[in-house]
Nucleic acid binder design. Structure first.
Lengths: 242, 242
DNA sequence: CGCTGGTTTGAAGGTCGTCAAGAAGGGTGG
DNA sequence: CCACCCTTCTTGACGACCTTCAAACCAGCG
């Protein structure tokens, strides 16, 4: 994959078209790729080193552990997403990031971000857009946990993942590869793995979604949207959904 | 109240001591006060006008409505908090803000923020700290909804409110004024009002907290922290709690 | 072929929601 | 000052959603 066609470039391009200069700047930013094994921690909660990461390939998650042994997953960084960007611009990270699969990442030291904000203000705006989109996802996740049933929350999650993956060309037809097992889904949705299993069966039996062999297939997009009460605008920078 | 001693100044001062220049800058920023009746919307979801608000007196909430008639409260802005700051720095607000009580607010047009970032970089850093603290609160709220029981979530909420109010001198002894009724608490914690009532009784009977006449009194701070699994560092900019 | 991680299913029980109705406060008008 | 209202709080009964415990099943892999 040429870094000029990096997932980050694809994603930012969907917000505002990038100039050739900006594309090469992004390519430079992501030149030094590093591979990471599955299940390794990339940013630790409370870490204050002034660098962020860009996920190039693979899936990750960010989470908090609670005293009684439970875990709450905050979100799933996908290719093209920043990890720990807040700890660079703002202060320390308040949660941990870890890879879920084997992954490829690039390190972003603080001064590189500063340079971009100096030299490429339009690109900086796009990065801020990506940050605010990430926060909107956390808020929407909060709504899922508080005011949606298990089946609605799962439906919402699959729709969000599909839309985000399509931005970086990781959707083929009506399906996408998805390495999340039922334990991980449970920790994301505040449920038990057993109940996730039962709800997945319901989604399958209703002909909405099926998950098999790490592949999510959406059989009835409209029905799923209806069920989840899905409003896609929070991912699009408030322009109409495609 | 002299604006030099504004709640915002108190709060930011707890992060990094402010210089006289910075204090007067903050005072100018908050000169034009405006009163707002209880239950009026201040920022509407999707609004893109480039201005933010600072809450001076009273309580507010921010929330999202879901299609089936439910409501999820994202957070409670308190005196000294910004509202809609993201819609100024980033893009549009993805949720609504409304006053809960009669309130006093000041409007902050975008150019004032830009000026501060130009002329007072240290103050700008403090404002970014406040922003990141707000996000950490949303994440902690997410954990409450996903991986804490009703009683743990309520305990956590009271502890957080107490700590935030103490930063702006709104705590007296072991209690603080709190206008949140059981319906509002329910919409914040993803519960029904009936169940909030039952849980409040448990907290009272265990001798931990009591709520009466819009006054929250914490009887057993350590016990409450123990119950909630409360870690206060997310509010302190990662310096040890006082 | 046995191990391991993940999925599936059943049974029992706890947390929490819904429905319903009564009690307690606080404000208003007679 | 009292009657009446409204909002908020409180409590009970019942049921739904979800968890926990336990066990069986399945697929990939050394």
């Amino acid at each position: 994959m040429s870094p000029v066609n990096s997932p980050l470039a694809k994603k930012l391009n969907s917000f505002a078209p990038l100039s050739p200069d900006e594309l090469t700047c992004l390519a430079d930013l992501q030149a030094r790729r590093r591979t990471v094994a599955a299940m390794t921690e990339i940013v630790h909660e409370g870490q204050t080193d002034h660098r962020a990461w860009i996920l190039q390939e693979g899936w990750a998650n960010c989470y908090k552990l609670v005293p009684n042994g439970g875990r709450q997953i905050i979100g799933f960084p996908l290719p093209g997403d920043f990890m720990g960007l807040r700890s660079i611009l703002l202060r320390t990270s308040d949660h941990s990031f870890a890879s879920l699969t084997d992954a490829v990442v690039t390190e972003v030291p603080k001064h590189r971000i500063d340079e971009i904000f100096q030299a490429f203000p339009r690109l900086a705006t796009s990065i801020l857009w990506a940050m605010s989109r990430d926060e909107a996802m956390v808020v929407e996740h909060l709504v899922s946990l508080g005011r949606r049933t298990a089946i609605e929350g799962l439906a919402h999650l699959f729709l969000e993942l599909g839309q985000r993956l399509s931005l970086v060309d990781l959707v083929s037809g009506s399906g996408f590869a998805c390495p999340l097992n039922q334990y991980v889904l449970a920790d994301a949705l505040g449920l038990s793995a057993v109940h996730v299993n039962r709800v997945l069966r319901q989604l399958r039996e209703r002909g909405l979604v099926s998950v098999k062999a790490h592949q999510v297939i959406i059989h009835d997009l409209d029905g799923l949207r209806e069920l989840a009460g899905y409003d896609s605008t929070y991912l699009n920078g408030d322009r109409p959904a495609r």
